[in-house]
């Protein structure tokens, strides 16, 4: 549905997006990750046709965003960052206006507005002015505007920003549900969100695409992925550490917890069945044995260089 090829964007001398290419099909929820200022919002603005690219092409449903902007834009629902809306309008008035611009008239318009109000739980504030809305309601109002015309493509720039935990949960469930038949791009810097809703992840750093794969693949790149956590009960800590350190494949032993037995992390991706044999063979009681799947924030930190590190390097 969405094809971005070699998209490049210069702001004067500043390269904001550097040769980024990717595709999103129906049924996919693509997580767009990156540190602040990495070019996430800029890339989304290029895809939605708000700003022209300096190079490369973007196609939405086969329509080029530069050559056939109206046809391409008609397929997109867009929630911009900070959820803008006209402050002096009521929620319902704003949605009616947006529906009209989407070409919906009469009964079709009324039905679309009702559906969006129901889907986004806006019933309580439908006659309220936009500038009196709380941040959560404002966000949902702008989201409602994006789904009015039931678009096959949804582009959401930080959809859960500023929502409380319950609203975040609802928003994620909504995105997951819609992701079954739509092509969705979600930008975020909340990593738990990626695990919760995305079928694929892209990471951009300083305008460059540095990762494109599933959340599972991303996690497996973690340095801690494949490490074992093992808990041994009723044995002194130093004995456990000394024995495990000598086991095959173990490159290091960290003691994580000593309150209920000894919890250790074994680095170097040792074979779990071997470690189980070692523990049981020594006549100890095995309390827990788990393979670590890796942590997204570890990988994120490894793949993207933080600003402070980059400044020191310069």
């Amino acid at each position: 549905m969405i094809t971005a090829e070699n998209v490049t964007k210069w702001f004067g001398p500043l390269l904001a997006v550097d040769d980024v290419s990717f595709q999103v099909e129906r049924g996919e929820v693509l997580g767009f990750l990156g540190p602040n200022g990495a070019g996430k919002s800029t890339t989304m603005r290029v895809i939605t046709g708000f700003i022209p690219a300096s190079g490369g092409t973007v196609k939405v449903g086969g329509f080029d965003i530069d050559d056939d902007p109206l046809e391409a834009k008609a397929l997109i629902g867009y929630l911009p960052e900070n959820a803008p809306a006209y402050p002096e309008m009521t929620v319902e008035g704003f949605l009616k206006f947006a529906a009209e611009l989407r070409g919906l008239r009469g009964v079709a318009r009324a039905e679309a507005v009702e559906r969006a109000i129901r889907t986004c739980f806006l019933e309580r504030v439908r006659h309220q002015m936009v500038d009196t809305l709380s941040k959560g309601y404002l966000h949902r109002t702008c989201f409602a505007q994006a789904i009015l015309h039931d678009p096959p493509v949804l582009i959401l720039d930080e959809p859960t920003d500023g929502l409380d935990p319950n609203q975040k949960y609802e928003m994620r469930e909504l995105i997951k549900e819609m992701g079954k038949e739509k092509a969705i791009i979600v930008s975020t810097h909340i990593l738990e969100e990626v695990e919760a809703i995305c079928t694929r992840v892209i990471i951009v750093d300083r305008g460059k695409l540095v990762f494109n794969g599933t959340p599972g693949e991303l996690k497996s790149k973690s340095r801690t992925a494949g490490n074992l956590r093992v808990r041994v009960l009723g044995v002194p800590t130093q004995d456990v550490v000394a024995r495990l350190r000598q086991a095959d494949g173990v490159k290091g032993v960290d003691v994580l917890d000593e309150t209920a037995g000894v919890l250790c992390r074994l680095a170097g991706k040792p074979d779990p069945s071997l470690i189980a044999q070692v523990v049981v063979g020594a006549g100890w009681k095995l309390g827990e044995l788990a393979v670590e799947t890796g942590r997204l924030d570890d990988v994120f930190r490894e793949i993207t260089i933080s600003d402070t590190v980059a400044e020191v390097a310069q």
């Binding site: 603005r45 046709g49 708000f50 109206l70 900070n82 803008p84 809306a85 006209y86 947006a98 611009l101």
Partner: peptide, 14 residues
Amino acid sequence: RSGTFELLFTMPIS
């Protein structure tokens, strides 16, 4: 200033 500019120019209008 309010950002609705972005909304307007991503709608299917010229």
